Simulated assay, not measured.
Amino acid sequence: MTGSVIHCGWMFPQLTSFVPGRLCTSYAAIARPNCHSFGRRKSYLLTTNCFSDVAAVTIASDHNYGNKQVISITPRVYDYLLTNVREPSVTSSWFFRILRELREETATMHGSQMQVSPDQAQLLAMLVQILGAKRCIEVGVYTGYSSLAVALVLPDSGILVACERDKNSLEVAKRYYDRAGVPHKVDVRHGLAVDTLNSMIENGEGCSYDFAFVDAEKRMYHDYFELLLKLVRAGGVIVIDNVLWHGKVADPLVNDKKTESIRSFNRALLDDERVSISMVPVGDGMTICRKR
């Protein structure tokens, strides 16, 4: 499946990447310069269907989409994709190795499915570079693979506020920040992300961040989004993971609380005229750029 991220009125080149058994999405929203006053511009949504691993190519069932051919990601196709992923770094193969070692160590841990895939980390790092971001936020760090990928491409004066409630996984992340030589770029915040984000707003940090990535408690997406909308500047980007939730949101027979919460969030964002959005099947996330 392919998708494009809409950022500040620019259309980025099409991006393709998938995880077997997972469907990944990102939203993009564009914000006004005045953080407290928003225009009435339309939001944009790129949607895709959910597909199985069986067929290599599927035709979209709705003829209104022009019988679009969409590739299904089989294990063979995904293996090919991963052989063409360059894990984010600055210049040195040493950084590639550190990212790979962190990914492989995390794969042996409980909850390893929470780690983003290499292709998603590559996309996050590229978005940060395209945006020229210097101040970033991550909600849900786990063992630090995605935050390390972002920290590596930030300028030396850049900062990433890393919010994580699990102390044990955060210790793994900090160990790899040290190994990669980027601890000065990562402001680790142990605790509930909502508390951290609220304190940042109270400290006068509103509209001072360029980029945010959310991969945390799904039932809190509405809260995270509203808080980040106060912290991310006009034209900044917010990436929300898991908005397709492994395809569950498209299955009417699945009605658990997390799935319903994500459906509700997606519907609310579709109608939110403060932002422009793009749902991209990468890492189960959604990229959001605030309107100018």
Rank of each mutant, 00 (worst) to 15 (best):
M11T: 15
M11N: 14
F12K: 12
P13T: 12
Q14M: 11
F18A: 14
S26T: 10
A29G: 13
N34P: 02
C35I: 04
H36Q: 09
S37N: 10
F38I: 08
R41E: 13
K42G: 04
K42L: 13
S43C: 06
L45M: 09
T47N: 08
N49M: 11
N49S: 12
N64R: 15
K68L: 15
V70H: 13
P75N: 07
R76D: 15
D79M: 11
D79H: 14
L81F: 12
T83C: 11
T83E: 14
R86H: 10
E87M: 12
E87P: 03
T91I: 11
F95D: 15
R100D: 14
E101K: 14
L102K: 06
L102E: 06
R103P: 00
R103G: 04
E104Y: 08
T106Y: 03
S112V: 00
Q113Y: 05
S117N: 11
S117G: 11
D119I: 03
Q122S: 14
Q122I: 00
L124E: 02
L127N: 07
I130R: 11
I130C: 12
L131I: 05
R135E: 04
R135S: 07
V139F: 00
V139Y: 00
S147Q: 06
L148E: 03
L152M: 11
L152Y: 06
P155Y: 08
D156W: 03
V161Q: 01
D166W: 06
K167P: 00
R175D: 09
R175N: 11
Y176E: 03
D178L: 10
A180I: 07
G181T: 11
V182C: 12
V188P: 02
R189N: 03
V194H: 03
V194W: 00
V194C: 01
I201F: 02
G204V: 03
C207N: 12
F211H: 05
A212T: 04
V214G: 02
D215Y: 02
E217I: 05
R219N: 08
Y224M: 00
F225P: 00
L227M: 06
L228I: 01
L229G: 02
G235K: 07
G236E: 05
V237I: 15
V237W: 04
V237Y: 09
V239K: 01
D241Q: 04
L244D: 09
L253T: 13
N255Q: 10
K257G: 01
T259W: 02
S261T: 06
S264M: 08
I277R: 08
M279D: 01
V280N: 07
D284P: 02
D284C: 04
G285F: 02
R290H: 04
R292T: 06
